[in-house]
Amino acid sequence: MWLTSKIKQVLMVLKPGVVTLKYPFVPRPAPENFRGAPYWDHTKCIGCGGCSNHCPARTIMVRDICQEIRVMLYDGSRCTYCGRCADVCPEDAIEMTKNYELATGDKNDITETMELFMLTCQRCGRCYEMETSNAIDKMDLRGYRYDNLETRTVIRKTTDQFDTSVLRETAQYKRPEKI
C-alpha cells in the first residue's frame, strides 16, 4: 500500500518532465513593473537634486565644482532599487530600467556620473525664488551643494553664493571612525 503510493509518486513526475529554465544561455526578460537599476536621462535632468534628497541610502551625491557645472554621482553599491528617485523627479528624467544583470567584481562598475551645465540667473548669479509649497523647497536648502565624491559622502552643507573655501574644505572630508 505504501509501495503503490511510491510508484504513483514516481509516475506522477513523468508528466511535467524537466522544468529548468535555460537562463544564462537564453535571455529572460523581467516582468512588468520590475525595478532594476535606475538610469538618468541627461537631456531632461535639470539638476534640482530632488533624487539626492529622497534617497534612503544616500546613494546620490551632488557637487558643484564651479558656478556653472554641477556633477551628480550615483553610486550603485548601496542602492536598494526602491524607486523613490524616479517617483519624485519633476522632469521624469529617471527611469527604473529592467536591467538586473549587475554582477561585477569591482564596485566602480555600477556608478553613473553626470555633468550638468546650470544656467545662471541674469541678475544675481544663482539663486532662485524660494517657494514653500513643494516638497523639495521645504527642505530649506540653498543653492550650492558640496557633497564629497571620493569618499561617497552626502554632506548637507549648502551656501547662497559659490564659495571656494567650503569647496576646499569638503574635498578633504573624512567619515567619523567607528568600531
Binding site: 535632468c45 554582477a103 562598475d109
Partner: peptide
Amino acid sequence: GLVDKKASPIELKQMEFP
C-alpha cells in the same frame, strides 16, 4: 566564465542648453 560582464561605469555630459 560562461558569460561576459555587462555592468560598466556610465558617464553622461550635458553640454548644450535644453
